[in-house]
Amino acid sequence: MRKFWFLFSTLVFAIGLTACAGETEESTESQNTKSEDATAEEGTDKEQNAKSAMMRFYMSTSKAINEHDGDLNVYEASEEEPTAEMKTSAEASAKAVVEQLKTIEIPEELADQKADLESAIEDLTASYQTKADELAKDAPSLDAANETFTQADEKLGKVFEDVGLIPTSLSTEVND
């Protein structure tokens, strides 16, 4: 009888171990799946955060320019010969944009694109500084400044693509 109980106990113990081992494998698979899902969600969140940060950055940049470039836009859009007063106002406007661009900060969510964004902001600043410098001359030429602006716009477009957005043109936002 003792042998029977011993065999029976051993059999029950073996079945119990088998059942526990099966649950451990299922639990490990479940944990792995949850970990993969969390990683995928984290990647999606990071991508979404970068897109949102890029849009905020872009909007703050265009707003910073638009708050100060009104007189410059009037000067550049003038079909008639600009007056000396228009020229002086445009120069002051360009200088104000330069100062405003120096205050723009790049969001942490765009750390991977920071170098490209800094380069674009430097080009924008150089563009407006060149405009201010040219407007101080008797016969200003804004062509070089506009080329630098176009380079900055292209750099911003590349960052838009990098974060998964459709590029837009800053010139359409600020030259109205």
Rank of each mutant, 00 (worst) to 15 (best):
E76Y: 08
E76W: 08
A77E: 09
A77D: 10
S78M: 05
E79D: 10
E79S: 12
E79N: 15
E80G: 10
E80D: 09
P82S: 08
P82H: 07
T83V: 07
A84C: 04
A84G: 09
A84F: 03
E85Q: 13
E85L: 11
M86A: 03
K87S: 06
K87E: 03
T88Q: 10
T88K: 15
T88L: 08
S89K: 15
E91K: 15
A92P: 10
A92G: 15
A92C: 10
S93L: 03
A94Y: 00
K95H: 11
A96C: 11
A96M: 08
V98R: 02
V98L: 01
V98F: 01
E99V: 11
E99K: 15
E99Y: 06
Q100S: 15
Q100Y: 03
Q100R: 14
L101N: 00
L101V: 02
L101G: 01
K102N: 09
K102M: 07
T103S: 13
T103W: 08
T103I: 07
T103A: 13
T103L: 11
I104K: 01
I104E: 01
E105H: 12
E105R: 14
I106K: 10
P107L: 06
P107G: 09
E108S: 13
E108Y: 11
E109G: 06
E109S: 14
L110P: 00
A111N: 14
A111S: 15
D112T: 13
Q113G: 03
Q113M: 07
Q113C: 05
K114W: 06
A115V: 11
A115N: 09
A115G: 08
A115T: 13
D116M: 12
L117R: 00
L117W: 00
L117Q: 00
E118A: 08
E118H: 11
E118K: 15
E118S: 14
E118G: 10
S119V: 04
S119L: 07
A120I: 04
A120F: 02
A120H: 01
I121K: 01
I121A: 03
E122T: 11
L124G: 00
T125K: 14
T125Y: 05
T125N: 12
A126Y: 03
S127Q: 05
Y128G: 02
Y128N: 05
Q129R: 12
Q129V: 06
Q129I: 04
T130V: 06
A132I: 07
D133L: 04
D133F: 01
D133C: 03
D133A: 07
E134D: 13
E134I: 07
L135D: 00
L135N: 01
A136Y: 06
K137G: 10
K137M: 09
K137T: 14
A139N: 15
A139S: 14
A139C: 08
P140I: 04
S141L: 08
S141T: 13
S141A: 07
